[in-house]
Amino acid sequence: MAQYSEKVMDHFSNPRNVGEIPDADGVGEVGNPVCGDMMKFTIKVKDGILEDVKFLTFGCGAAIAVSSMVSEMAKGKTLEEALKITNKDVAKELDSLPKNKLHCSNLGADALHNAINDYLQKNEKNN
């Protein structure tokens, strides 16, 4: 446990943006219980901007901190900007993650991108 940075411990202990947006514009999921981590992101989009981002996460301390950080990084950004957030950026913002957690738990950006792509696909169909 001493392996985690203060920032990780902060986001783990006080996660931001926990929950599920009802009538979300986009939903993105990654992971499964076998590998130990599961994330579900829901987003609200207005004028091409991420007005709200919420997450649900089943997973270890790193997975929870990553989810919280991604939600904070993405909120208020344009879809294009948010799509550019990488898992690496998230780890950097958290003052790094333990090596063995870099792959398995660091899936937050993927879950966010899935939610944005879900929104984009739905929107395409509607237009």
Partner: peptide, 8 residues
Amino acid sequence: RRMSPLYQ
């Protein structure tokens, strides 16, 4: 559990 997709 409040933040668990499995619980929700």
